[in-house]
Amino acid sequence: MGGGHTPVGRRERAKEDKRERIMTAAREQFAEHGVSGVTTRQIADRADVAIGTLYRYASTKAELLIMVQNEKFAAAIDDGLAAANAAVGQGGVLERVVALIGPVVACVREQTENGRTYLHELVFGDPTEPYRRAGLALAAGLEEGITGLLTRDDYIDAADAATLARVITAVIHISTTATVYLHRSDEAVLADVRNQIRATLAPQHRTA
């Protein structure tokens, strides 16, 4: 009886191996050529799987991109939260928020076409699709992280903090994806985002 579990284990390991090969191939192809310069067939060939097998893991190229970018986005948020926590006591809420979003800005702009497409897909794609749902959960986590930092400010209450966090994430989205800003360096984009956040928070301090 107990031996009946072995084939299931092999199948699961094989599935995980194929998923990892597909993820690695997609990551490499998107990094080298950008999402518009790659086909699902090329990704399948590099992963050494049949195209039908690839479609069992992600039915479109957009979903493959979201799979890859979700991992990068999650790591960037974790890095940002760690940087923000390390900055506690070293500056005001503005500096802590900037510490949090710094890795996120760098992540989105690492390969600008991929980052822009990723955010576009999260905003305008089907929110019930599993990879998009996971990406939207990451975006919500970023927003919650910003909210948590803002609530540490004596002049910002919880309700305002949540609203301001939504404004700040919108600022990040526009500043990292708008065509007019693509020529800027990451440092210039982050400095501009910082100025916008400072202006957004200023009324809270003036009216307190």
Score class of each variant (00 low, 15 high):
Ala75Gly: 06
Ala75Pro: 02
Arg116Trp: 01
Ala202Pro: 02
Thr200Leu: 13
Glu129Val: 05
Ala76Met: 07
Lys18Val: 00
Ala62Gly: 10
Phe30Asn: 06
Pro127Ser: 03
Arg166Ile: 00
Arg96Phe: 01
Gln204Pro: 04
Ser59Gln: 11
Ile66Gln: 00
Lys61Ile: 01
Arg133Asn: 08
Ala202Leu: 13
Asp154Phe: 08
Thr200Arg: 12
Gln29Met: 13
Val193Ala: 06
Thr117Val: 09
Leu149Ser: 04
Ile197Leu: 12
Arg21Tyr: 01
Tyr118Asn: 05
Ala188Gly: 01
Gly2Ser: 14
Ile43Gln: 08
Ala86Gln: 12
Ala58Lys: 06
Arg206Trp: 10
Ala50Cys: 04
Gly34Ile: 05
Ala106Val: 01
Ile66His: 01
Thr24Val: 04
Tyr118Pro: 03
Ala26Lys: 07
Ala165Pro: 05
Gly2Tyr: 05
Asp160Arg: 14
Arg132Ala: 04
Thr151Val: 15
Gln111Thr: 14
Ala199Ile: 12
Leu94Ala: 02
Gly80Cys: 06
Val38Asp: 03
Pro130Glu: 05
Leu138Arg: 12
Asn195Phe: 06
Thr177Tyr: 05
Leu94Phe: 00
Leu119Asp: 00
Asp192Arg: 12
Tyr57His: 14
Ala26Gly: 06
Ala199Phe: 09
Val123Trp: 03
Asp192Lys: 07
Leu64Cys: 02
Asn114Met: 10
Glu95Met: 04
Arg133His: 12
Lys61Arg: 14
Glu32Arg: 15
His33Cys: 12
Pro7Phe: 06
Arg166Gln: 10
Gly2Glu: 13
Phe73Arg: 09
Met1Pro: 12
Ile43Phe: 03
Ala76Pro: 03
Gly125Tyr: 07
Gly91Asn: 09
Thr151Leu: 11
Val180Ser: 14
Ala47Met: 08
Ala50Arg: 13
Arg109Ile: 04
Asp126Lys: 09
Gln69Phe: 10
Arg184Gln: 08
Lys61Trp: 01
Leu81Lys: 13
Val38Arg: 00
Glu20Gln: 12
Glu12Leu: 15
Ala82Arg: 14
Arg10Met: 06
Glu129Ala: 09
Val93Gly: 04
Val38Thr: 03
Glu121Thr: 12
Gln29Gly: 03
Gly141His: 12
Gly115Gln: 11
Thr39His: 04
Thr151Ile: 13
Gly92Leu: 07
Gln69Glu: 13
Ile101Met: 10
Arg96Ile: 08
Gln42Thr: 00
Val189Met: 10
Ala75Glu: 11
Gly9His: 09
Arg21Met: 04
Thr24Met: 08
Gly91His: 08
Thr169Asn: 10
Glu143Gly: 15
Arg13Gln: 12
Arg184Leu: 10
Thr177Pro: 04
Glu113Met: 13
Ala87Lys: 08
Leu142Pro: 06
Asp17Val: 06
Ala161Val: 09
Arg184Cys: 12
Arg13Ser: 08
Glu28Lys: 15
Arg166Asn: 06
Thr24Trp: 01
Arg27His: 11
